[in-house]
Design a binder for these strands. Structure first.
Lengths: 336, 336
DNA sequence: GAGGCTTGATCAAACGATTGAGCAAATCTA
DNA sequence: TAGATTTGCTCAATCGTTTGATCAAGCCTC
């Protein structure tokens, strides 16, 4: 590849002149003629600034890492799309890092930042990610933004409108006449499950519908955990007529278990899942969902980490626009 | 962050000594005592080699880019997992780049390599990626490996056992007694669709089952295109009793259209899709699939690009192990 | 026309790591 | 014990950019 000095030689000027012209610094006092010659030479040689040299000099890479617990996660691809789009606009690139079980996430993050590979880190906090994993972040040594989880202290975060989302699900079921509504929620230790739980209770209270204590489970977001939670409800003497499931994967698990038990959805039981995905259309019955603004979660997170890197500010944001949206399909119906 | 000279100062030696010890070069003639002091100092300062400096000096980043057409693609996450795992073992990191429609892929790739951000590129060739997009790769200026597509010339590639996969699907249907078997295939221009088509025809011939010309469509791999293809078959006077669908997404689309038309699967028609995903279990009916070795595709591709970078060799590989595997679910049954 | 600005360029020192060459001191060889 | 070799370390150049400092002209101003 052509270097600055190649371009300089061809244009008959010094490297500094070339550098100033091509990075068009405001302080560049260059004559129009030389500028032209430099630009021509650069174009002819197809010059591209060397990434490593620039990063070394500026101690800035314009790369952020996105650390995710799991690629098969339903929410990943939309989130990534949002992050990617935001990054492009800000002149950044995204390095994807899986937080695998082998190495603690803290190690991965410390490497990424310690070696100067990235300027900052976006961390999608998963169920299996403990607070210990977030030590370098909590300590503030690493410019980071937590996605979908809040932490005390000066850590930035961006979260979904979880309360509102659960509320939309509840309101939908209430409007269909349901009064016995259960909740299949994520692990009680996770932030998003807590907020969805709050939203569920708040919406139920607002609708004047009582919540039975054994109508709430907290087993987790996976399909398997959703199945297990469904079994719990099926074994109850006083069963709910509708379920809000905090995650689409768990909702699929619930559908699976319902089918296995010969419980008809939606005739015997209505189910609404939080998060939308194209696969919801292929399930049987097609799953009614609450679409959450995942794309925007990605975009806003990218903007947040950008600001964090630039000014050090650490905000806690909630995505407000667009609000959670009900996507009615065939897994919910009027109470029988 | 601590630099080499920080470590050198603390250990009371020169930077060169530190560099040699920490990168434990074989030519390093260092006494045990000094080695110890250096290692201690490095540990105490939590020294990590600066990525940019190393990359600049060695003109090598130990990063490869994975260029994908689409993140929501069913095959992406397993592929990525394989690439990631392979990368870890070889001491590489993976930069994920979406080949979006805005900018031609060739531009993206040229940037990535031209700026020295990556040592090589893995390109998952999508339907929308034309030959023009691959110019810098075909020219051989960029160390690259094509995933799932072959090209003439000295371009390396790794592909799935597509013929065998289609064969497994056909054999399954034949063993269930089907004699009228149709194929819903990808776009005729794509390499994988061509190979799956060949595999289909070969397996049919081997089984002594004739193929009707209008029992093969080539509309594409997406859900929508699968629906459209299904409509074609439904409008036929002489309809097949079973369908091989070249892609799981298209198979979901076919299921959707079958349901819309009141065609019962598998009672009226059997369907088997190529590629497996956990979502196949949630469809109605649960989709019988042929699981393709996507994880291995990723791993082998990573190894291939590594070799390509190291020695310049360009091989065309087919994943042989594990072979395509039938995952029987409920969308296929004995011919009625 | 001497001194002071402005303009348009170059010089040179970083950034942090790698690595061939150089050089004392220690050890070996005969 | 003189000379050769090995051992253990340091020197210094280099990778490609950025950027403050410097400097030679040209142009005002009075």
């Amino acid at each position: 590849m052509a270097t600055l000095s190649d371009v300089a030689a061809r244009a008959g000027v010094s490297v500094s002149a070339v550098s100033r012209v091509l990075s068009n610094a405001s302080t560049s006092r260059v004559s129009g003629a030389t500028r032209q010659r430099i630009e021509d030479a650069a174009r002819e040689l197809d010059y591209r600034p060397n990434f490593a040299a620039r990063a070394l000099k500026l101690s800035r890479t314009n790369v952020v890492a996105l650390v995710v617990p799991d690629l098969t996660n339903a929410i990943f691809s939309e989130l990534m799309r949002g992050v990617d789009e935001g990054a492009r606009e800000l002149g950044y690139m995204v390095l994807l890092a899986r937080a695998e079980s082998l190495r603690p996430a803290s190690e991965t993050i410390a490497h990424l930042v310690g070696e100067g590979r990235v300027d900052g880190v976006l961390v999608q906090v998963g169920d299996s990610m403990s607070d210990a994993d977030l030590i370098p972040i909590m300590e503030g040594t690493v410019p980071a933004v937590l996605i979908n989880s809040r932490r005390a202290g000066g850590v930035g975060s961006v979260v979904l409108p979880d309360q509102a989302g659960a509320g939309v699900a509840v309101d939908h079921l209430v409007s269909l006449g349901h009064r016995k509504i259960g909740l299949i929620n994520g692990l009680p230790t996770t932030d998003s499950a807590q907020r969805r739980g709050e939203g569920f209770l708040a919406a139920m209270a607002a609708a004047g519908v009582p919540v039975q204590p054994d109508h709430v489970t907290n087993l987790g977001y996976t399909s398997t955990q959703g199945r297990a939670a469904f079994s719990h409800f099926a074994s109850l003497a006083d069963q709910p007529s509708a379920l809000v499931v905090s995650n689409i994967n768990a909702a699929f698990g619930a559908l699976l278990e319902a089918r296995a038990r010969g419980i008809r959805v939606p005739e015997d039981l209505s189910i609404v899942g939080i998060h939308d995905a194209w696969t919801a259309e292929n399930s049987w019955p097609p799953l009614t969902t609450v679409k959450m603004p995942l794309y925007e979660l990605g975009r806003v997170s990218m903007n947040a980490i950008f600001e964090r890197i630039r000014s050090g500010s650490a905000e806690d944001l909630v995505i407000g626009d667009p609000p959670p949206l009900l996507v009615p399909r065939a897994s919910t119906a009027k109470v029988g």
